[in-house]
């Protein structure tokens, strides 16, 4: 019998009577991380990793949240549940579920590269692994973070030297903080959009070292943004909000920027292909490291990854979920929802 199944409410563990990242309200939700397609509103009780709790509270308001440390085990109706680092964003976890000697793990979203902010990914040995596949095609192969950050610094430096603002669009939870923590803050002042600054504060409160930032709305003086780096969510691009920056160069930090057509279509000056999701080699490496004989593939390039794994001898199947699937497939929608 399958320990975890996809149901109309979400991934469901019937032995323990709880859901993982449910997309409809349920009585007990175990949450992998705070992104809106994984942590949804309306469930009676939530369980998540300790660093994820304040993010969840910010997102969902005053809800009942139980928090666990990584590796800590909790008995839920006879099922042993524990959370393990997924390396995706602060407090992101893979959910390990053990029942009568059978172990399943649900990855949520994950990446293998250490980003210096979130707890590094740890493979979970299991019989069955439920993996995301957002960037599940071999064309997605990330360059090392240090190289990309050098590109970001260079772009900012050049704009600063020419007196322009640098507008960097990045997903507000995770990506923005990762970039912030790794950018060369000596180049100039850093401003953040009102949707990003509160998340920075949560990160700081959890002990993540981020450089000093200011709210865009609180900038003083006509030339406040000349030479500055401005973080904003992708939805702000080409909106009237951008007018205040005068002459600026814009860039989008997203795994989708790996493909030239995506960047050109959105009309950004620069695209930095940096993602909080595993690239193709990362997905394969992570899946093999679990030792799982069964693999369930969720949101992203489900068909391609499933077929590839099957052809390499694994029992791989597609699992239908409602996690940001359209975006993942085309990269054409607002690619900010991971």
């Amino acid at each position: 019998m399958d320990l975890i199944k996809a149901t109309p409410q979400g991934l469901y563990c019937s032995a323990g009577d709880f859901h993982i990242d449910p997309w409809r309200p349920v009585s007990r939700a175990v949450i992998t991380h705070g992104h809106s397609d994984h942590a949804r509103w309306g469930s009676a009780a939530y369980l998540c990793q300790r660093d994820c709790a304040p993010i969840l509270r910010k997102r969902l308001g005053d809800v009942s949240i139980q928090a666990l440390d990584y590796g800590e085990r909790l008995d839920v109706n006879g099922v042993s549940v524990s959370l393990h680092p997924a390396g995706h964003v602060l407090g992101s976890a893979q959910i390990r579920v053990e029942y009568r000697g059978e172990v399943w793990a649900a990855s949520g979203d994950y990446k293998l590269e250490r980003d210096g902010v979130s707890a590094p990914f740890e493979p979970v040995r299991c019989n069955a692994f439920i993996s995301e596949s957002t960037f599940g095609l071999p064309v997605y192969r990330w360059r090392p973070q240090a190289d990309i950050m050098e590109d970001v610094n260079q772009w900012w430096r050049r704009n600063a030297a020419e007196g322009r603002a640098s507008a960097l669009f990045a997903y507000g939870l995770g990506k923005a903080q990762r970039l912030l923590a790794n950018v060369d803050a000596s180049i100039g002042p850093i401003y953040c959009h009102g949707a990003i600054e509160p998340i920075n504060d949560i990160y700081r409160a959890q002990g993540v070292a981020l450089p000093a930032t200011r709210l865009v709305a609180e900038a003083v003086g006509k030339n406040a943004f000349a030479g500055a780096l401005v973080f904003a969510p992708p939805s702000a691009a080409a909106s009237p909000w951008m007018r205040r920056f005068g002459e600026y160069s814009d860039a989008f930090a997203s795994g989708w920027m790996q493909i030239r057509g995506n960047r050109r279509r959105r009309g950004f000056d620069q695209g930095f292909a940096i993602s909080d999701h595993a690239d193709w080699p990362g997905l394969l490496e992570a899946i093999h490291a679990t030792g799982a004989e069964r693999v369930f593939v969720t949101h992203g390039s489900v068909g391609a990854l499933t077929r590839y794994l099957s052809e390499s001898g694994l029992d791989a199947r597609e699992m239908r979920t409602e996690y940001g699937e359209e975006e993942a497939e085309s990269g054409a929608q607002e690619p900010e929802a991971p």
Binding site: L137, V139, S301
Partner: peptide, 25 residues
């Protein structure tokens, strides 16, 4: 790149440009 043909085609159709697909693969 040691890819099966169907996977190459999938990549090509995602990228939309042969030269770029090769550069990435």
């Amino acid at each position: 790149a040691r890819l099966p043909e169907w996977l190459f085609e999938e990549c090509y159709s995602t990228v939309g440009d042969l030269a770029e697909t090769l550069a990435l693969l």
